[in-house]
Amino acid sequence: MPKDFQALPVVDISGLSSGDPAARQACAEALGRAAREVGFLYVTGHGLAEALFDDLLGQAKRFFARPMADKMACYIGGSVNHSGYVPEGEEVFADGKIDRKEAFDVGQDRPDADGSEPMTGPNLWPDDPAFKAAASAYYAAVAGLARRLFGGFALALGLPQDHFEPHLTAPSAQLRLIHYPFDADAPPDQQGIGAHTDYEFFTLLRGTAPGLEVLNGEGAWIDAPPVAGAFVVNIGDMLEAWTNGVFTATTHRVRRVAEERYSFPYFAACDYATVVEPQAAFVTPERPARYPRLVSGDHLFAQTVKTFQYLKPLRETVGQTAAFGRVEGR
Score class of each variant (00 low, 15 high):
255 R>G: 00
197 T>R: 09
220 A>P: 00
147 R>W: 00
6 Q>I: 15
59 Q>V: 14
144 G>K: 10
55 D>R: 13
250 T>Y: 08
161 Q>M: 15
152 G>Q: 01
185 D>M: 11
23 A>S: 13
217 G>N: 01
175 L>F: 02
261 R>G: 01
211 G>Y: 09
230 A>R: 09
77 G>R: 05
36 R>K: 15
321 T>L: 12
166 P>T: 09
307 T>E: 12
328 E>R: 13
327 V>H: 11
271 D>R: 12
41 L>S: 04
120 T>I: 15
133 A>R: 09
32 G>R: 08
215 L>Y: 10
330 R>I: 12
29 E>H: 07
290 R>K: 11
64 F>Q: 05
49 A>S: 06
231 F>W: 10
312 K>L: 12
313 P>Y: 08
68 M>N: 03
133 A>I: 05
212 L>M: 13
61 K>V: 13
198 D>C: 10
91 E>Y: 12
320 Q>P: 00
78 G>Y: 11
51 A>L: 07
281 A>D: 04
99 D>E: 10
66 R>K: 10
326 R>L: 13
104 F>L: 13
127 D>L: 12
63 F>N: 02
230 A>T: 06
231 F>E: 00
284 T>E: 11
162 D>F: 09
72 M>W: 02
322 A>L: 12
31 L>I: 06
232 V>T: 06
167 H>P: 00
74 C>E: 01
314 L>F: 12
147 R>N: 02
218 E>I: 02
109 D>G: 08
319 G>H: 05
273 A>K: 12
88 E>T: 12
161 Q>G: 12
6 Q>P: 00
62 R>N: 14
150 F>K: 03
190 Q>R: 11
7 A>R: 15
15 G>H: 02
220 A>L: 14
242 W>F: 12
30 A>Y: 05
76 I>E: 01
270 C>H: 04
194 G>L: 13
267 F>S: 03
173 A>K: 04
118 P>D: 11
203 T>C: 06
303 Q>N: 11
319 G>S: 12
214 V>R: 03
286 E>I: 02
74 C>M: 04
77 G>M: 10
288 P>K: 10
38 V>T: 02
262 Y>E: 02
28 A>K: 03
130 A>I: 08
148 R>C: 05
93 F>I: 11
84 G>C: 11
22 A>Y: 12
207 G>T: 04
177 L>A: 13
1 M>I: 11
314 L>A: 07
206 R>L: 08
306 K>R: 15
238 M>V: 07
205 L>A: 03
